[in-house]
Amino acid sequence: MTARKTTAPTPPAAAVAADAHWSATRERLMARARPVLKLTICDDDEAKQAVANARYVEQQAKIEADRDPKDAAAQAAHRNAVAALEEAQAALDAVSIPLRFQALERKTYKALLAEHRPTEEQADDGYEFNIDTLGPVLIAASSLDGITEEDAQTYLDTWAPSEAQALLNTAFGVQREERMDLGKG
């Protein structure tokens, strides 16, 4: 589905005159990128455990280093632990597969939902869309890494259920990602 390009409306002159900062605020709002989520896949349990161990050692070394900033041995131990953690993380990153997903424009997402209406049984169960047909399409449409619908369907059909669900959850989750705070002003 192709997103059509729209031109930004011009703000009312009265609004700009009333608030000199509105123009800059508006520009920032118009320039916002849609949310992105990353799903990292790693089949190497040893690499994951090495990072967990290195993180624990680094945290313990930091506690000791913070306890006495003048203790040269504790400071050196912390620096070494940080280096070991960075090395373990680099090794994990090298064997991991990161997949990135970006939220679709609202109109595009709503159109996809409308194109994949639920079956009667799904509707009776309260579903607003057909997860079986929408899943691979949404994964492909939101993938920043070029996952095709065919690839997505293969992953959903052949991966372990929890892994397939994690893939689906990431593609759906980025559509619902919020980066706003409705707190007091």
Rank of each mutant, 00 (worst) to 15 (best):
T6W: 15
Y127I: 00
H21P: 01
M1I: 10
A152Q: 07
I97V: 11
P9K: 06
A111V: 05
A141E: 15
E178A: 05
E86A: 14
Q165T: 08
K5Q: 14
V36N: 03
D124A: 12
E46W: 00
A166H: 07
A76W: 05
L113K: 06
Y155P: 00
Q60V: 14
K62D: 13
N53G: 01
A166G: 01
P11C: 01
A50I: 08
A73T: 13
Q175N: 06
T148Y: 00
K38W: 00
R28E: 13
V16L: 12
L104P: 06
P118Q: 04
K62M: 14
D157Q: 11
A111S: 15
M180C: 02
A52T: 11
S143K: 10
L92S: 09
D43T: 04
A166E: 07
A76Q: 12
R32V: 10
M1E: 12
Q153V: 00
A84N: 10
L92T: 06
V137I: 14
C42M: 05
N80Y: 00
R28Y: 03
K107Y: 05
Y127S: 01
W159L: 12
A88H: 07
A3D: 14
R26K: 08
K110N: 15
D132M: 06
L113E: 05
D125I: 10
A123C: 04
S23K: 13
S162V: 04
L112R: 01
Q60A: 13
A77R: 10
A72I: 06
V174F: 11
L29G: 03
D181K: 13
L134K: 02
A72N: 00
A15Y: 08
R106C: 06
N130E: 10
D45R: 11
A111Q: 13
A81G: 06
T2R: 15
R67L: 12
V16C: 11
T148V: 09
L104S: 13
A164F: 03
A33T: 12
L37W: 04
E46I: 00
V36S: 05
T7K: 14
D68N: 15
E86I: 05
I147N: 09
V51M: 13
E163Y: 07
L37H: 10
Q49F: 09
Q153K: 04
D43E: 07
P35R: 06
Q75M: 09
T148E: 09
V82C: 01
G126N: 08
L113C: 07
Q165F: 07
T2A: 12
T2F: 11
D93W: 00
A31R: 07
T2M: 12
W159V: 03
Q49M: 13
E64P: 02
E163N: 14
P69L: 08
